[in-house]
């Protein structure tokens, strides 16, 4: 049951949510270099921690997408120009 493939529409929604969450982590982490208030910074870090956990869980489910593929170490075709 756990290894059942996901439906197409759920997988695409997962793609949306994963990218959104990834951006949340990146923003909340990097914005910490810009903010002044330490409480705000702490809250942002809390968001980073929570989002990392959430993202990990999402990644796990995402592996059951019908278009899942082996993930290479880094991007197979780096951007040259």
């Amino acid at each position: 049951m756990d290894n059942q493939k996901l439906a197409a529409h759920e997988s695409l929604d997962l793609h949306e949510v994963i990218n959104f969450k990834t951006l949340c982590v990146a923003k909340s982490k990097l914005m910490q270099g810009l903010v002044f208030d330490n409480d705000l910074r702490a809250l942002m870090q809390k968001d980073v921690d929570q989002s990392i956990k959430a993202l990990g869980e999402l990644q796990k489910i995402y592996e059951r997408a019908p278009f899942e593929a082996p993930v290479p170490e880094s991007r197979p075709t780096p951007i040259v120009n």
Partner: peptide, 24 residues
């Protein structure tokens, strides 16, 4: 979609790594 899948997983992985760093 398989290409997109790899990209999604890689950027999530990389961003999690950045998130776990002690940047500041």
């Amino acid at each position: 979609l398989s290409e997109q899948y790899q990209l999604d997983q890689l950027s999530a992985k990389n961003t999690i790594m950045i998130g776990n760093m002690n940047l500041f």
